[in-house]
Design a protein around this nucleic acid. Structure first.
Lengths: 152, 152
DNA sequence: GCAGTAGGTTCTACTTTAGAACTCACTTCG
DNA sequence: CGAAGTGAGTTCTAAAGTAGAACCTACTGC
């Protein structure tokens, strides 16, 4: 049967899952962040099937994370460029990066890659904090409730 | 064909994707964070098929995000409890929450639910920052490189 | 003793994914 | 100038994955 969709769920986690839950989608976004723009660049970097890649790219365009820009008229050729919404998605990947780095390399090893700040050259470790206080988020401190008006 | 696995990829994002990329998995974890522990609690909260739920729970146990605790011997009955690794995963969900809240509710509306700090009662907005500097992460500031030894 | 409950497992039908082959409109190479 | 190459897909088939319902097992409570 058709996979259950979460796009209209009341929960932001569910909606985000619906968007990124297609297999390969987070990797396509990762490559977009690394500067890939053309179909074959993505395809070679990911070794994903062309059929799946075409579907993923077109969904990401539909959802507004990527936009197309023609760089050639005949035959029509497009580049896939990150939109502002697409760039905002980076924070999700950064959180995934940190979790993977901390928990998915067993026996004390570390991934061969690392994030660096482009300006200072320093390594970057992403953390999820409470925007108001700057304190790292801990589940046990959280409660879910109905939205209250007038509070940001 | 079998879905391409990313569990051995060199990239932490890919490994995290492999873990959470099964349909329903992020929702199962969300419910775990909300305090669900028993099979039927999850099932009723999620209206997921029992077959899929059983698979997801057992994978999450295998991967060490959940652990089982017997609360009854005969017949054997288990609760699914978050491990430390499982709790760490919350930061990924928090980043997804924030992205969904900011970008997946069109026309200026907001989700009906909100996160609150359990102690202060204040609303919480998760942000992903650079741990070292506390500055929110911006893609354009990032570079990926080989890991350098001796730097944390 | 009989219905109900908790926690699964099994079954079938349908959807997604993977991988390869094919198309189309140029470009470049010999 | 014809032949091979390139970029960006589309189409095809087979194998996994997902959904929903039905079934099973071992109690519990009435």
């Amino acid at each position: 049967m058709r996979r259950t969709r979460f796009e209209d769920a009341a929960c932001p986690i569910a909606r985000t899952t619906d968007l990124m839950g297609d297999w390969w989608t987070p990797m396509v976004m990762r490559e977009a962040f690394l500067g890939r723009r053309r179909f074959d660049e993505f395809q070679k970097a990911l070794t994903v099937s062309r059929g799946v890649l075409a579907k993923r790219l077109s969904r990401l365009v539909d959802e507004g994370l990527l936009s197309t820009r023609a760089y050639e008229i005949r035959p029509p050729r497009f580049e896939y460029i990150l939109t502002e919404k697409g760039r905002a998605f980076y924070s999700v990947l950064a959180a995934m990066w940190r979790f993977g780095e901390d928990w998915l390399w067993e026996d004390g090893s570390k991934p061969p890659l690392q994030l660096f700040d482009r300006e200072s050259g320093e390594p970057v470790a992403p953390v999820v904090v409470n925007e108001r206080t700057g304190v790292p988020i801990d589940v046990r401190q959280m409660r879910l409730g109905e939205r209250r008006k007038g509070l940001r």
